[in-house]
Write a protein that binds this DNA or RNA. Structure first.
Lengths: 224, 224
DNA sequence: TAGATTGTTAATCGATTAACAATC
DNA sequence: TAGATTGTTAATCGATTAACAATC
């Protein structure tokens, strides 16, 4: 850590950061990258907020949790802020990810281009189905039996796992990921997974996303 | 509407419902259905909260936005509460959905079993790529050129659309969905989409979900 | 300099939790 | 009845917004 740090950095006993702030951070990053592709070099909190539907105050407050990134009178320099947010989110490095479950959804995740661009690489896939395993590899990526998880995870220093198996199998898979030291799990199975403290979990349930949509369509204007 | 309504129902000038409440509603529903499959007929707010990591007070408060569903001393009857929540979310009916973009991700969405079980049916898929269109159908579902959206959408009374196209194409697709009267959009493209008031939007960005995970892994314990 | 915009404080707003009378 | 649990009110907690001195 050579360059001076603007703030004690969120690693300390630093006041905890609201989850909502972190999810907006990802949106800021995405928007900044889009702006940069369009040749923008600088952006104000007002403009960034407008593009995403937030107030300028919120943008500044969110960023101020992590340091002083802006220039009064100018705004934020896109390249600097992109670098800063990536560091905050931990995606200034590439993360090797394990995928468990190579059905429909798993295959789509394997082929998804968006991961590489944002610092993630699926380095190994696992399944238990003989039919799937028979192929040996998909898109050039080896597909192992789940029983090989321990060795493969260790060899590739895997810290993140994605679960794309049927609901009833998800908890068992999560337990096996934990057992090999995975620190974060992205779960696509439509069930609640129980994890011990100290392991992070993000759940994505595609049907639930659609339900959120139908609610607001049916109750047009009833949400905050 | 024959049976007596417990409350003025969220359609009125009824105080607006926080988004967070609606997303928990979906989790309650999922958990209740899981419980029911395991033979449970009744559940208390305390137990339901414990399973999902919420307080009992929160569960009761959330449900109380919509009516009186519980029985003091007993709890909630699973079947009744499932029916009630489905009605609230609008998934007591089946929604025909249009899918635009039949690449990797689109194909996975087409094959996803979880939708049908929760009230959604993809009734038509669209693309603009000649190679994709050449097949004519996928999984028995017709794939049309996007230019055919107006007629197909009308014929099938489509009110919801899912966007699974590359980022640069997403806004254009959204505009075309709007033009045919779609009222809600689930966007998987990693870009911000602008919609007019009165159309609902839910965005799912897979890389962002992973970023949320890396943040909490890197800043272990720094989130609320 | 004048104009723009930051970082931050204080005020507002909204959501969560605790507590309890009512009820089965 | 006693025990359990609801629905709801009031208290607490946290997050958002408005305002402004500091700064480029």
């Amino acid at each position: 850590m050579s360059d001076f740090e603007p703030k004690p950095a969120a690693s300390d006993a630093d006041a905890s950061i609201p989850k909502a702030v972190v999810s907006r951070l990802s949106l800021y990053l995405r928007q900044l990258q889009q702006g940069q592709r369009d040749g923008q070099t600088t952006i104000s909190s007002k403009e960034l907020g407008r593009l995403l539907g937030f107030t300028d105050a919120q943008v500044r407050k969110d960023l101020a949790y992590f340091g002083h990134f802006g220039y009064p009178g100018i705004g934020y320099r896109c390249d600097e802020l992109i670098t800063a947010i990536k560091r905050i989110l931990g995606t200034d490095q590439t993360w090797p990810v394990a995928l468990v479950g190579v059905g429909n959804l798993g295959r789509a995740l394997l082929g998804y281009k968006g991961f590489a661009q944002r610092g993630f690489t699926i380095v190994a896939a696992f399944d238990t189905d003989a039919h799937v395993l028979a192929g040996g590899s998909i898109d050039g990526l080896p597909v192992y039996h789940l029983d090989n998880l321990p060795e493969v995870a260790r060899q590739n220093r895997i810290r993140l796992g994605m679960i794309a198996v049927p609901g009833p199998a998800a908890q068992g898979v999560a337990d096996r990921l934990l057992a090999v030291g995975v620190e974060g799990i992205l779960n696509f199975a439509p069930v609640t997974i129980k994890l011990p403290e100290g392991v992070s979990l993000v759940g994505v349930d595609l049907a639930i996303e659609l339900e959120q949509l139908t609610f607001s369509v049916v109750n047009r204007g009833a949400t905050t």
